[in-house]
């Protein structure tokens, strides 16, 4: 069972591959893809999705507002 609590969805075509989100991520979730988008940018993607804690740091620092961040609600017993 994966331990992920969060996830991100990157608008790949809007992403310019600046990698500011990569260094802002505290859990080393994000990296730039080997592939490029239509504009030729190596876009950001979740390389280690299991680590995502949904902290939204990547979305907050993204200059192109192309990251949507999700965080699962804690399950209450």
């Amino acid at each position: 069972m994966a331990k992920a609590k969060g996830a991100i969805v990157v608008d790949i075509e809007k992403c310019k591959g600046c990698s500011v989100c990569v260094s802002a991520c505290p859990a080393q979730v994000i990296n730039l893809a080997a592939e490029v988008n239509d504009k030729g940018y190596h876009y950001a993607y979740m390389e280690n999705p299991d680590n995502c804690i949904g902290c939204a740091n990547c979305g907050v620092v993204c200059p192109d507002t192309c990251i949507t961040v999700y965080r699962a609600k804690p399950v209450t017993a």
Binding site: A2, G54, A56, C66, T68, Y70, R71
Partner: peptide, 21 residues
């Protein structure tokens, strides 16, 4: 938790504001 379970409208914690075009 599976990623598909996380990526749901109600779990959004950060998204583009509609005031941005």
């Amino acid at each position: 938790m599976d990623i598909k379970e996380i990526i749901k409208e109600e779990n959004i914690v950060y998204k583009k504001t509609s005031v941005l075009t």
